[in-house]
Design a protein around this nucleic acid. Structure first.
Lengths: 351, 351
DNA sequence: ACAAGTCTTGAGAACGCTCTCAAGATCGGT
DNA sequence: ACCGATCTTGAGAGCGTTCTCAAGACTTGT
């Protein structure tokens, strides 16, 4: 491959191959109706020159921008990040997206948007105008933000809503939260636990509700109680501490807790330790997320693995396929799985 | 702000304000020589229409692309990510970069490149041609990859080399590895440890060497031994297990270990536990990285905090300032700090 | 062998922006 | 007031690509 001094343009290739710009463009984009012989000749010139089309120019000429924009909550992301909180949400999502994007010749960009501000519309609008992405991926808690979904629908930009199953524009994807909570609860019930508590996430997240539902359903199926066994946190460590304390104070018989985030679970673990409760001997713990921090705690936590990367990957594929997003797309569900480690054990005997 | 149906272009603004395109462009780019009165009028039109210049078009017209490209090692990143290994390198780097970029109106993109393949040049070349970034950030182990740095220099794209202090094109930035290792070692020596071991990283990373140097220097300053106290790992958990075992087998008197990554340190912690050694009572541990996993282990680990975000942020700023990268830039060093937790204690008495 | 397609190729405009350069307006010094 | 210098504004070209549309080369059916 020849060393390149100046940017190689489609014009250089056309000249090199002795054809018109249009023909080169056709070859590059795999267009039909090009004689095989000519196609080879052009391809050879492309390889020889190391030509790669400029994204900017492609975008300019009215075709796609080949960019997928992923929207994250700025506030939360930054807090997690600055304090090294241990959420690998961005990691998972970005890498899951990047991989799938690049497989299709797309690129992924991350945008942090502040949900609470009333600038949302402006911030997002600016990003959309500047980037003109071919698709947008919304993550909780943006997924069901009216302002955002409407803006996107209005601009006719295909978008995916992760963690939302509501009808409306955009492709909805969920990670099976109801089922996962049901699974975790059932697993604990099978181990003999009868007072299974839940530390839920904030109600602004739909998935918080789904998880509560799954937990309730499993409990109801077995005639187990749920009164007084629910606490709400904000996914953060401190809120987990508060919730676990309240739960344990109120329910001396509680032998199992499901936490809606790894951090809250770790906080519960700490609370248990403080009170001389052994995990899993006296108290079983299951967390949601399965981020890396949960593998190295003592004991390592049993956790529901949220298939973030896989979900984002699916979202990207949907967007690239450009499903005619109009007409209520069916909800895509990527199932979460239970990763058993050492924080769960049969309920202690105390007949 | 008016609801936008079609993309607002600079032309719309010009019309709205009754001026020429050029004038709008000047106002947008803060150009000089525009009468305040006119400037206000144009600005009003911009706000009214919600105009935001298209990145693609800006790039096309020969100005900057407003894109900074961050290059990461594909293999390593993907392994870490798939197995949820707990490196928050990408997170830190991306977010540190995004924040600083957006502060200056730039965007950051992440590219995963495979160092080992001989396609490096092609892969990277393609990314550069497609994106035409205004600057590139190289992370270890790419920072000193000749093929890459030469390609970048040749294309006259300003770039930063993180974790490299070698002379040559590109802005070198380091995180004070030598000093950090020296600091950690000294701290342990002050606690009375006399046999302080190090589990280093692979030699392909310059920082591995720097850390060894810092450790050696601190040891030498106090007349402490280093023979047989060095093991090399690959930053991964398993290699840490191997190294810790070898170290402890060979040096029964070893009471402190510095590991060149959190995962290797956690592995050492596990090895200690297996052998009935209490951390920090029998064995002190200090790790490099300070990723979130290290806060929730038992005990939480004392660690050298690598200021990745800050470093990337500095790199971005340098690139945007477009220092005439020619002419050996001075090495920029962002100092690492020691975060003391509970894995370090005075050396056990065994006179 | 001829009209009526179908393939293949190319010419030229268009995308939204910034650059260069020139023209008109304003200013300062004598 | 007058002339050159400086400010302010605008017209037009050009960036690298794809789109539309038309022209020429080949087929095919009768």
């Amino acid at each position: 491959m020849a060393r390149v001094r100046k940017t190689v343009t489609i014009r250089d290739v056309a000249e090199e191959a002795g054809v018109s710009l249009q023909t080169v463009s056709r070859v590059v984009n795999g267009g039909p109706n090009v004689r095989p012989q000519l196609r080879d000749k052009v391809q050879a010139a492309i390889d020889r020159l190391g030509y790669v089309p400029s994204l900017a120019a492609q975008r300019m000429s009215g075709s796609r921008s080949y960019i997928i924009l992923a929207i994250n909550d700025r506030e939360r992301t930054l807090a997690d990040w600055r304090e090294r909180r241990g959420t690998d949400w961005v990691d998972q999502m970005l890498l899951g997206g990047i991989l799938t994007c690049s497989k299709h010749g797309y690129r992924m960009m991350v945008e942090l948007v502040d949900t609470h501000s009333d600038h949302v519309e402006r911030e997002l609008g600016a990003a959309l105008s500047a980037l003109q992405p071919d698709g947008v991926i919304l993550t909780p808690p943006h997924s069901e933000n009216r302002l955002i979904t409407e803006l996107l629908a209005e601009r006719r930009i295909p978008f995916a809503r992760i963690g939302s199953d509501a009808p409306g524009p955009g492709i909805p994807l969920t990670m099976g939260d109801e089922g996962a909570a049901h699974l975790a609860t059932t697993r604990l019930a099978e181990l003999g636990h009868r007072n299974i508590a839940m530390i839920a996430g904030p109600s602004a997240y739909s998935l918080s509700g789904w998880r509560i539902e799954g937990w309730r359903r499993a409990l109801a199926e077995r005639g187990l109680p749920h009164e007084g066994l629910l606490e709400v946190g904000d996914f953060g460590y401190e809120s987990g501490t508060r919730a676990a304390r309240a739960l344990l104070d109120r329910n001396p018989d509680c032998t199992a807790i499901i936490a809606s985030s790894d951090q809250m679970a770790l906080a519960a673990l700490e609370v248990a330790r403080d009170r001389g409760l052994s995990v899993p001997h006296d108290l079983s713990l299951i967390s949601f997320d399965n981020t890396p921090i949960v593998r190295f705690s003592q004991p390592p936590l049993t956790a529901i693995d949220q298939p973030i990367a896989e979900t984002v990957s699916r979202a990207v594929e949907q967007l690239i396929a450009r499903t005619p997003s109009e007409g209520a797309a069916a909800v895509i569900e990527v199932a979460a799985t239970l990763v058993e480690r050492s924080s769960t054990a049969p309920a202690p005997d105390r007949a």
